[in-house]
Design a protein around this nucleic acid. Structure first.
Length: 277
DNA sequence: CACGAGACCTGTTCGC
DNA sequence: TGCGAACAGGTCTCGT
């Protein structure tokens, strides 16, 4: 489930607490347990067990789609990939089927990494740049301007959709928000990136920011059996609306496959890929 | 460099 | 009802 708005929501809930659970800031980790070996990307399980014990949780943030837990002399990083989730529960609770890694806390709570598809990964390192170093800019960073975006678009000759999904190009955008942003910007997913005008780049960046902020405002999107309480799925303009009417022009939304990802767009009001207008 | 296919995994939904 | 295929919010690696 997790793109930028979903990870932001999870980070915020762990940082500030919710009606269901207290904040994890100030907690001390009494022990860690790895239930699926490949979930731990770094370091080795023995090193992890030693180094995680006794760490204090100082802050919980996000970078791209990574959830970042800052702990004094180390940083814990989670990438939720397709099906990962973080849940706070009582330490004595039965370990759910899809839990892959557990952090027991001194308060008697437990932070569990739940991940049915086992694609998610966890890192514990003194140097988070080893994981985050290659990421592109944060789309919501005000320092990142339309002119910057235009320049990056023109450094490449790539189809817009796969480029937006490239985390080295921009950090945090996934399949839902890419489709939604392209629709808002009236741009075809196959349009070459270096064909955009400065004005179009500006409109696209604005669209990206709008959908990400809407997603965050609605606590992310909840799809299928993976439910987190967000409701942005009720406000999709194109994603998973194949055959339904475009809200702008009434044309049925079309689904194609681009870079092996389902891609949804309006064939009428999203400019054709070779349009120079 | 850009792109497509295959891999990694499990679960749900669709079509016959 | 049953069963295989298609599909799923992500990313890596390999071949062309």
């Amino acid at each position: 489930m997790p793109e930028l708005p979903e990870v932001e929501t999870i980070a915020r809930n762990l940082r500030l607490g919710t009606s269901e659970q207290p904040t994890l800031l100030g907690e001390t980790i009494s022990s860690g347990m790895v239930l699926w070996e490949k979930t731990l990307a770094y370091p080795s399980i023995p090193e992890f067990s030693v180094n995680i014990t006794g760490q204090h949780i100082e802050d919980i943030t996000r970078r791209g789609k990574y959830l970042v837990i800052l702990m004094g002399d180390a940083t814990l990083l989670f990438h939720l990939r397709m099906s990962g989730d973080l849940v706070v529960e009582q330490a004595g609770e039965r370990i759910a089927t899809h839990h892959r890694l557990l952090l027991n806390l001194e308060s008697g709570l437990r932070l569990a990494f739940n991940d049915p598809r086992k694609f998610g990964r966890v890192w514990l390192t003194p140097n988070p740049e080893m994981v985050l170093g290659e990421l592109g800019p944060e789309p919501l960073d005000e320092q990142f301007t339309a002119a910057d975006f235009f320049q990056r678009l023109h450094q490449k000759h790539r189809q817009l959709k796969p480029l937006l999904l490239d985390q080295k190009f921009l950090a945090g955008i996934g399949n839902i928000y890419a489709d939604e942003a392209l629709h808002l910007a009236y741009l075809h997913p196959l349009m070459p990136s270096d064909m955009l005008s400065l004005q179009q780049a500006d409109v696209l960046l604005t669209g990206i920011r709008q959908v990400l902020q809407e997603g965050i405002l609605r606590n992310g999107a909840s799809i299928d059996w993976v439910y987190r309480g967000g409701d942005f799925q009720n406000y999709f303009r194109v994603y998973q609306r194949t055959g339904e009417a475009c809200f702008r022009c009434g044309t049925p939304i079309q689904r194609i496959v681009v870079g092996q990802r389902g891609t949804h767009f309006c064939p009428s009001c999203q400019l054709s890929p070779d349009s120079s207008v």
